[in-house]
Each structure stands twice: as C-alpha cells, then as structure tokens.
Simulated assay, not measured.
Amino acid sequence: MIVNIALLADIHGNYEALKAVIEDAKKNNVTEYWLLGDILMPGPGSENIFTLLDQLPVTVKIRGNWDDCLLAALDGKLSLNSTDEIYLLRLAQYLENKLPPQRIKAIREMPLNVQKTINGLKITISHHLPTKNWGRELMATNSTKAFDDLFLTNDVDIAVFGHIHQQLLRYSSHHQLVINPGSIGQPYYPRKELRNDLRAQYAILTIDEQGYSDILFRKVRYNKEQELLSAATEHLPFLELYQELLNTGVNKDKDRPYLQKIIDDYHYKEEVAKWLSGRHSQLKEKNG
C-alpha cells in the first residue's frame, strides 16, 4: 500500500495560504494529512481554517507553541506587564469571538507528540521536541546532536517536526531521517536574498511497500492580497505587523518598541484590561 502524507505545519491563521496548499495536495494524490501545530495567530483565520481541515482525512493533530499561547491567554495566565503578552492577549480576544467552545476544547486535547508505524517504519511526530513545543534547539543550522533529541528511542526511523518555518531534510547521528515541511503561513528565510519567495510551504511524505519512498517539498502560490484584505476587513489586531510579515517575510513581533507604539496608538492595553476584567467577572459568577 502506498501512503502519501501531506505534512502541514505553522499555518498561523493564514487561511488563503492553507486553502492553496490543500488544493495543491489534492492534485498530488495525498491520502492523509498530518497537522503539526501552530494553527492560529497572528493571521485573521479562525473557524474558516477549522472548517477547511474538517473536510480532510487529518489523522494526526499536534499542539504547537502558539496554540498553547492562545490557551494561556484564555486561561488568564498572561499579564499586562509586557508588550509580548499584550500582543498575545489582544489576538486571543479577537479569536475568542470567532471560535466556538468546541474548537478551543479540541486544541486543548491535541498532544505534543504522536508515534506512528506505517509499513514497518516507526515515525515520531511533534511540533518541536517530543516533550517541548517551543525553543530554538532545532534551528536549521544547529548541530546534528541537537536533532538526536527528536528521537526518544533509537528504534524510531523518521522524525517529523515543524516550528522553525524552514523546509529541511537531514539525518540524526544514527542516520534516522529528519523532516521539516516548512511553514504554510509564515515561511522564514534568515538570508535576505532568499526572501523574495514567500510562497506557502508544505511537504508530501510517501511510504510504499518497501518503506520510505520519497519526500516532496512543495511551494504554493496563494492570494496574498485577499489574505490581507480579509485581515483589514475583519479588523485584525496588529494589522501593520501582519502586513509587513506577509509582504517582507520579516516578523517584528519581538521588536518591543514597535509593538509598544502600536499598543499605544490603538489603546490595546486598555482594551485587553477591560476584556480580562469581564472574563474574570464571568468566571466568578459561574463558580458562584
């Protein structure tokens, strides 16, 4: 039996990019889909993304670090003491009004790691490391030893992960295969000269009767103008940040002075404080 698996990672709320990738995957005879985490934020996509995914045979769903950030914001675990957390809180506030409770519940239930065996090959699937979905341990130029930590045991043959937003094929110290399909919503190129290509990225892993057959790295054009129009029409918070990200490939979400200016200009801190106060009152009422 031949299995063609579409590896989908780091959508980050980019509905138009996901839609184009799915259309491409169907043309390439994909038989199942693995979702490697970071489904939402900072793009405007919300329920429309889940509706697209509901139509597919998604057999693996992994929880990413941005998925955890959304949950932390909704659970009251973030504060107003930093620009980073105000940024996440405002995006979570935006999404809370667009997502039904069952979607949040489904995100909570996604594991950090899944192990699969297909035609005799043992595969480990995670967003980053098997027990940790955030960090920089697996950046593309890191040492081979760093990638050994993807494998909890030596009998695992292939590791699939997301998080770094770069397409990658390499091996562990024990010659185990390591695959990253890149990012659907936010392709990342540290080298400036490569940033002209910001097409959506994913990969197709093929396993046949003899084992690992092929890995096809795909780049797909999508309607960026429609994505940005949707972001503006739906009043996406930190719209300037998202526009710059899609147009230049540069993410300024760690540029604190820039974030602070946007927060001040749009009074996001006050808006989020009011939202948090309302949620706290609702929770208090609910618990009696």
Score class of each variant (00 low, 15 high):
residue 192 K to L: 12
residue 80 L to H: 01
residue 101 P to I: 05
residue 43 G to C: 04
residue 189 Y to W: 15
residue 98 K to F: 03
residue 216 L to K: 09
residue 201 Q to R: 07
residue 6 A to Q: 03
residue 32 E to G: 05
residue 156 V to E: 11
residue 5 I to C: 06
residue 23 E to D: 07
residue 233 T to K: 12
residue 160 V to F: 13
residue 207 I to W: 06
residue 27 K to D: 13
residue 202 Y to T: 02
residue 42 P to T: 11
residue 63 R to C: 04
residue 8 L to S: 05
residue 271 E to T: 12
residue 203 A to V: 15
residue 144 T to F: 07
residue 122 K to D: 12
residue 148 D to L: 10
residue 117 T to K: 12
residue 153 T to L: 09
residue 200 A to R: 08
residue 35 L to C: 00
residue 26 K to L: 11
residue 157 D to I: 10
residue 267 H to Q: 15
residue 126 S to G: 08
residue 116 K to E: 11
residue 7 L to Q: 03
residue 119 N to H: 10
residue 207 I to F: 05
residue 114 V to E: 15
residue 276 L to Y: 05
residue 276 L to Q: 15
residue 137 E to C: 03
residue 257 P to C: 12
residue 161 F to V: 12
residue 240 E to V: 09
residue 262 I to C: 01
residue 192 K to E: 13
residue 13 G to Y: 14
residue 189 Y to C: 11
residue 82 S to W: 09
residue 133 N to F: 08
residue 145 K to R: 12
residue 84 D to E: 08
residue 249 G to T: 05
residue 261 K to Q: 14
residue 197 D to K: 05
residue 205 L to M: 10
residue 13 G to T: 15
residue 196 N to H: 14
residue 111 P to G: 01
residue 115 Q to F: 12
residue 187 P to Q: 10
residue 56 L to C: 01
residue 288 G to N: 06
residue 113 N to V: 12
residue 267 H to F: 13
residue 16 E to K: 15
residue 225 E to M: 08
